[in-house]
Design a protein around this nucleic acid. Structure first.
Ligand code: ZN
Ligand code: ZN
Ligand code: ZN
Ligand code: ZN
Lengths: 159, 159
DNA sequence: GGAAAAGCGTTATATTATAACATTCAACAG
DNA sequence: CTGTTGAATGTTATAATATAACGCTTTTCC
């Protein structure tokens, strides 16, 4: 049972707070720097359970600033966060989403609702096993798995 | 046992010929038009078992022509071929590859070698089942699965 | 044959991402 | 402290991928 069901009401402030806290601890333990900018970008990524585009983040970063931020600012922060496993890239929609369990290494697997855009990251041993089995049958060594399932979430399929 | 092993020598002319023949039959049976341009693009996609970028196709289309082809020419042909299931898009690398079994509906799953770029499309009931199980556990209805596994193929892992 | 739709050419532009170099900041040794 | 070094960020420009919009041509079908 997960700590929240993003398809229902929940206190999302907790999600944000938890994600930021975990990120801080994780970076501290790895002795790397979660700078204010990186933390800010992570916070913006976590504004919802919907994937967010790099240029959306850029626009939000720029809000209220005198000079607009530039693309490399965002992409560098995202690169850092992705390297640390704090953020995933959803290549099928060119968007980014916070990782729900950054402390444990995993192949990411996402359920992306095409209607409400809510996206959840799932971990399912059966998927991992079937992929590994299949790859090894072909003598293939998986380095990086991208599994993105688009469709309708519980909420949207009934509406 | 598959009709060829793309990691070893094989007569790739057969692959191209078979793919084009199957495409013609399939379009005929669906009563849709595989125009010369579309067929040409499909042929270019099938030039190898490596994914190919839209602008690479564009460049090859332009070879020997007086006026260079424009992006919409290629993208429209690719859109058509994808709608008909003759070509898949690999979003993790922004590239396109011919479908190895376009006549039967399937979720695409690819093993993409990061070294030699050879890519094979696999069908494995266990993967389909585990994905379906997992999605339905979350009340999610899969409309479109994108599974792209990057890593080392048999050949490259030993070299 | 003529209307309607599909296909394609063409021009322009949107969207996503990176290269390259300058400047500032943080860490650390001496 | 201070000077040195590498990391982080700012800044400008550009690359790479993809689509919008409009008009002409070809095919389909009555
Ligand atoms: Zn939440
Ligand atoms: Zn994750
Ligand atoms: Zn296929
Ligand atoms: Zn290889």
């Amino acid at each position: 049972m997960s700590c929240f069901n993003p398809y229902r009401d929940h206190n999302h402030q907790h999600c944000i707070k938890d994600a930021l806290n975990e990120a801080r601890l994780l970076c501290r333990s790895r002795n790397i720097r979660l700078t204010p900018l990186r933390e800010r970008v992570l916070e913006l990524v976590w504004q919802s359970h919907c994937p967010v585009g790099a240029y959306e983040i850029l626009a939000e970063l720029t809000q209220g600033e005198s000079k607009p931020a530039q693309p490399p600012t965002v992409y560098r922060a995202l690169d850092f966060l992705r390297e640390q496993g704090l953020v995933h890239r959803l290549s099928s929609i060119n968007a980014y989403i916070g990782c729900s369990h950054p402390s444990t290494p995993h192949n990411s697997c996402f359920l992306i609702c095409t209607q409400c855009r809510t996206t959840i990251e799932i971990e399912h041993p059966a998927i991992e096993h079937s992929l590994e089995d299949c790859a090894s049958e072909h003598g293939f060594i998986i380095a990086d798995a991208s599994i993105e399932l688009a469709g309708l979430c519980t909420n949207c399929k009934t509406n």
